[in-house]
Nucleic acid binder design. Structure first.
Length: 420
RNA sequence: GGGGGAAUGUCCCGAGCGGCAAAGGGGGCGGACUGUAAAUCCGCUGGCUACGCCUUCGUAGGUUCGAGUCCUACUUCCCCCA
């Protein structure tokens, strides 16, 4: 591939967003003319998106930022009713239309942080494929769309092949997912002149299906861009913290925890992530790249703060950074650590340590059994004192002058219990 | 249509003569070492009102003092014959 001429592809290329493209020159030309109306689809399977989705949202951001075209965030209100079989062994249990609707509402907020919505020609729009998918007539659909798909070929796609090879059930319902996604692409072209679909590298097959369907239905040339699948340098799938997925919604994962997630990046990933997940200029990133040894920690802090600021706002990011500084660098007690309120009466009565760490209170551990094991391996601390007695009890006397009890699990996770 | 196999700890892979909370990996978590990193080493890896109790081996029954293990039926998948 030749050097890109458009700002859009320049940025995407130098920041490492591109895994595969269907026609680099063609996309480049359309971007220069500013007519690269582009969509990315998001399923509504959960109440929040997670870091894995962030990559494609960033691509939409750059699309808009460089004036390459109009971003379309497609909510899969319709396709979610079918379920994408990609990469999963089991069928997901079907969500009710109500759940999907709730999820959709919950997902929306994140996009506005990174792309500008509105009515102008370059403003982003959000559409829901339920709008057209739920109105389809089966026989008509089969005749117009179904005839363009070869089952022989569909069977060869990874999403399908994986299930078949592993002897797992693949329902006819899920089998149709890729057809619907292809149809979406063509429909978005008809409605909004959309000519590019972006997505994760696992979506390549599905996107190309859409391009093929477009050609056969007489649309103009459609394009595909995929981004790499996110993994850490040591090969692990990215997007999990110790406490679970890295959600983008603030009510699912606090700004502090989000900041911590980025702070704990492996050395080898810092620069790559700065390019992908922050808006810092390349020259600035190159400066950070020069840091070595323990100095890399400075780059990690920048990464954490910038990434958090994008999603949760600058102020929340600064607070998270400061909380971390006090907690980790000074070993002091920061009152802005995640806090759980407990009735003062339960301290008067005495609260079992194991219970305090468990799912009812601090939620640092999933069960008291797990808490018990952690006591044995010295992983729990109360006010920085290692817990040695699993039958220990927290009382009012354990409250610090600030009126809290600091519970720590491992070296990195801390929760304050505040008596009220 | 006939014959032969398979399903195990709800993260995955995988052993399991009738006494089994069930071998071993991987992954995950904790500890040590570090820099809130990686690599390495050690420990842990069903639940609970906890020297005891409860729930787990595809589903439902049965035999037995006792079943993951034996029998019957069912479900799903694989292989061979037609």
């Amino acid at each position: 591939m030749n050097a890109p001429k458009s700002d859009f592809l320049k940025v995407l290329t130098e920041r490492g967003f591109i895994h595969q493209t269907s026609d680099f020159e063609g996309i480049d030309a359309a971007a220069i003319e500013g007519r690269l109306t582009t969509y990315v689809g998001y399923d509504c399977t959960g109440p929040s998106l997670h870091v894995g989705h962030l990559l494609s949202i960033m691509m939409l951001h750059w699309l808009q930022e460089t004036g390459a075209g109009k971003p379309i965030a497609l909510m899969g209100g319709g396709t979610t009713r079918v379920g994408d079989p990609s990469g999963k062994d089991e069928s997901r249990k079907l969500l009710t239309p109500e759940q999907i609707e709730d999820n959709k509402t919950s997902l929306k907020g994140v996009f506005a942080r990174l792309i500008t919505f509105g009515d102008g020609p370059r403003d982003a729009i959000m559409v829901d494929n339920a709008e057209w998918l739920t109105k389809l007539n089966y026989i008509e659909f089969l005749r117009d769309v179904g005839r363009h798909f070869s089952v022989n070929r569909m069977l060869s796609f990874d999403s399908v092949k994986l299930r078949l090879e592993r002897e797992h059930e693949l329902s006819f319902l899920e089998f149709n997912y890729m057809i619907l996604q292809a149809y979406d692409f063509v429909e978005l072209h008809k409605r909004y002149g959309c000519i590019l679909q972006m997505g994760g590298s696992d979506q390549w097959g599905n996107i190309v299906n859409g391009i093929d369907l477009g050609r056969r239905s007489g649309t103009s040339q459609l394009y595909a861009v995929t981004c790499p699948l996110l993994t850490t340098a040591s090969g692990a799938k990215m997007g999990k913290t110790a406490s679970g997925a890295v959600w983008l919604n603030a009510d699912m994962l606090s700004a502090y925890d989000y900041w911590q997630f980025w702070r704990n990046t492996e050395d080898a990933d810092v620069i790559r992530f700065l390019k992908l997940f922050t808006l810092l200029g390349m020259d600035e990133i190159h400066k950070l790249a020069a840091l070595e040894g323990a100095g890399v920690n400075e780059a990690k802090k920048v990464l954490a703060t910038e990434a958090t600021a994008l999603l949760h706002g600058r102020e929340a990011a600064e607070v998270a950074a400061e909380t971390a500084r006090q907690t980790f660098e000074q070993g002091a007690l920061s009152e802005s650590l995640p806090t759980v309120e407990i009735p003062a009466s339960s301290l008067d009565a005495g609260l079992g340590v194991l219970t305090a760490f468990g799912p009812e209170y601090a939620k640092l551990l999933p069960s008291t059994g797990e808490a018990r094991r952690q006591v044995k391996s010295g992983g729990l601390r109360v006010n920085d004192q290692i817990v040695t007695d699993e039958r220990g009890v927290l009382r009012t006397a354990n409250l610090t002058p600030e009126g809290v009890i600091k519970l720590s699990f491992g070296k990195k996770r801390h929760v304050l219990l505040r008596a009220v």
